[in-house]
Amino acid sequence: MSHAALLKVEGLKVSYGHIDAVKGINFELHEGEITTLVGANGAGKSTTLLALSGLLKKNAGRVQFDGQDISAQPPHKIVAAGLVQVAEGRATLTTLTVHENLELGAYTRRDGKAERARDLERIYALFPRLKERQNGLAGNLSGGEQQMLAIGRALMAKPRVLLLDEPSMGLAPIIVQDIFRTLRAINREGLTIFLVEQNVRQALKVADRAYVIETGRIVLSGPGAELLGNPKVQDAYLGG
């Protein structure tokens, strides 16, 4: 953890009308690491992610990505810069086929067809179920398959940082295990991951760096394993 931050957020504030959802938070993502932001429902996790991607207006604060200030960039420029988000829940396009979803993931890429085809094969190797169902509509996939598709589609953008909003939501425990195993595998290949989770135990287990958010403020931070052993975290999030 000695190298400089790849993404640095300072003093981020976001509000919905008069309600302050995120009240000035700071955090850092480092290259090649898994960073997690955990907290209860409504703590401001998704709000933080949507603001990072430019979908929500930031009231204050700065987002620095690889030395560039991207705070004021529109969403499509942020994706093109390499900050790609897998949104919460069923983030796939249900009226498009599995294959079309993946092709669309590469929307911001300007490299050749051959390279895209190679990446597509990599995704299919990572998620063989998607290959079997490539010509079916994404809307007919199971919840777990849709989450895999959403992750695969984000990988097609060749991200430098993958942002994930509750990939475990609504999925059976065995599928959640599967998804986390996959995330760790992609991370070992060098991809920086920012994981927002309510499933605190799972998230802290895989995280190199972790932040706990409560009602819009970061209240704890440290290595994932350390927070996992923290009595306050155990008390509040891990059922004692």
Binding site: P74, I78, Q85, A87, T92, L93, G105
Partner: peptide
């Protein structure tokens, strides 16, 4: 075409389209 897929993505969900890096506006 990729443009056509992008338009269909917007028709289904503008938010998903934004997150794919589509210049929705």
């Amino acid at each position: 075409t990729q443009l056509g897929r992008a338009l269909r993505a917007m028709a289904e969900s503008p938010k998903a389209a934004y997150l794919l890096g589509i210049n929705v506006e």
